[in-house]
Design a protein around this nucleic acid. Structure first.
Lengths: 339, 339
DNA sequence: AACGTTACCGCAAACGTTTGCAAAAGAATA
DNA sequence: TATTCTTTTGCAAACGTTTGCGGTAACGTT
């Protein structure tokens, strides 16, 4: 379907001006008299002129597109961050393109390259869960600013928008201690998960702080954090001769699964076993008892990441330096730890 | 940060060829000998040549970008559709840009125009909830293919990927009749919501079919479909002297709220009142009792919408004709209607 | 030997915009 | 009046790519 695009040229001929004058007039260049500007703008309006972004981008070597790479858009926390990013980008004249990695490092590399080839100004990215080889990111960083959020890696020298995972986890465990729990279990991901290990660290620190023993039998790990794995591991925990009296789950999904299992075996929450999750996903108020969980302000993370990105794009400082932007979290106390 | 982009020119000079030959060689033009092609491709590889998409798009008047407009990415059904779209677009050489309307018709119009101005090849779109003025869409349709999904409007002459809302709702209500329910209430949105009215239609049809009276006191409407509104309206229903024995909610969120209220007042589900939702959101298996609901295959909707879009872009048929692609739904029966 | 074919390649224009530089016109100064 | 300065405008190049058309060389055919 053909479109009747009007160009600068048409405005120029119609007004007996040169193309350059028209261009400058529309861009409010100081060299152009107010009267000419008015005339030009009126004519542009009349002819429904819309600038050809491709030509503009081509000429100025600038696309004003920012790439976003996430494992999956259906993950609710990711979606919340995304929303923050989109909300912020609307205020600017940057558009965004979004791609998924599905937690596949190979795909991650492909997507990254495609985006660079596409000429994005910068890349906002959450690493996939088990990314080990960071060379694609280092390569990208040589060409464009890269900002990590959610799943980050301190080995990549770029700015990272994160929450203080250790403190957040410590705070959650502290709460369990405060309500009188002594045998606190943890359900986490395996060692190659960055965030999981951080939260585990917070868990250990708090136990130590309160002189509670770290019991290996209360530390459970698994590959993917899902409701089903939560169910399964909870079953393991309640089969222990020496049961825990609280379970700290490093994701809400784990926690949901745990609660399901505990209810199935008629274990009282939180009296017998208290449960705390991490993320404050929408599930946490659906499940009963409502879940005590760490609130991660996804929208704010997205917003700050986007703001920082624009800053890095527009200042021509070097952007290959590590920098950490930390977001405050807070623990939301609900029925699963407190009646 | 400067980037050392290699251009066709560099390959050409390095190989003592003309730019045109290099361009043709890389595009596998028949006029170029196999040997030259090999040489060129090897050199391109060596110099890490990446085509300048802007220049290419500018020259060919083609961006290979498809625009996606949705009310909000955090809505789980939307996210699922999005995933389907992204998954499909990966297989092609089209990229996507995503924008939100937040159910604001003004914003919708803006976003639509921005995308067109940006030179997208086509637009995939879910209308915002209360869009009344369809002229922006009609205008867009004059320039580019437009495909609607989820929230659609039959007044816009374009292809629409939909589920058979009436049949799906009828099927759900039928199920309630089958388990012996006679006073079936409905919680829906107001009359200006297209999907809601369709589902309401299915509700009425089924009642008529089984000679059940349509009782106005059992028909509740509200502005936005949320858990809280579900809670509130359920309370209204159970305060009726002649209570319903089942509630058909036109969204899962409504249903979740309803269940919460029913449990609060110790009303037995499904014995006293059965509940059915719509969408099969992730919440439906978190809530207890698990929710019987209509499964809308979001991934499939996204996939088909994308496929159709590419078809419309690449065939130069006229695309301003109404066409409906219907997706099958199925009712997932869980504890809220069946123990 | 003259001509036609085929296979391969290069020239140069074009896409719409921005921008350095020069030019023209008018205003101010000497 | 002649000179300089300021304001406003136009010329033309450039960005990287594709592509119509023309050209050359080699070969085959009469």
């Amino acid at each position: 379907m053909k479109k009747e695009t009007t160009t600068l040229k048409q405005i120029a001929t119609s007004l007996n001006l040169s193309i350059s004058t028209v261009s400058r007039a529309l861009n409010d260049h100081i060299d152009i008299s107010e009267e000419t500007k008015r005339k030009v703008k009126r004519e542009a309006e009349r002819l429904q002129y819309v600038p050809n972004i491709l030509a503009k981008g081509f000429r100025k070597q600038k696309t004003n597109i920012i790439g976003i790479i996430v494992p999956s858009v259906i993950h609710s926390f990711t979606a919340t961050i995304l929303k923050g990013i989109l909300l912020e980008s609307e205020k600017t004249n940057y558009t965004t393109i979004i791609a998924e990695t599905n937690n596949n490092p190979e795909k991650e590399k492909d997507v990254l390259n495609t985006m660079l080839q596409f000429g994005v100004e910068g890349i906002l990215m959450a690493l996939s869960k088990h990314t080990r080889d960071i060379s694609p990111m280092l390569l990208a960083l040589k060409k464009r600013p890269l900002i990590l959020f959610d799943k980050v890696s301190s080995k990549i020298p770029c700015t990272q928008v994160v929450i203080d995972e250790i403190a957040a986890a410590a705070n959650a465990v502290e709460h369990l201690v405060n309500i009188g729990k002594k045998r606190i279990a943890i359900i986490k991901e395996r060692e190659d998960s960055y965030n999981s290990e951080k939260r585990f660290e917070g868990y250990k620190q708090t136990l130590k702080k309160h002189d509670l023993p770290i019991d290996e039998s209360l530390i459970l790990s698994t590959d993917d954090s899902s409701i089903n794995e939560g169910k399964r591991l909870a079953r393991e925990l309640i089969c222990l001769k020496d049961k825990p009296d609280a379970i700290f789950c490093i994701t809400d999904d784990f926690a949901i699964g745990v609660i399901k299992t505990l209810k199935k075996f008629a274990i009282k929450i939180p009296d017998e076993i208290a449960v705390v999750g991490f993320s404050n996903s929408s599930h946490s108020t659906i499940i009963e008892p409502n879940l005590t969980t760490v609130n991660q302000p996804g929208g704010r993370i997205g917003k700050l990441a986007m703001q920082q990105m624009i800053r890095e794009i527009e200042s021509n400082e070097v952007f290959g330096t590590s920098k950490s932007i930390e977001i405050q979290t807070n623990l939301i106390i609900r029925e699963s730890t407190f009646l």
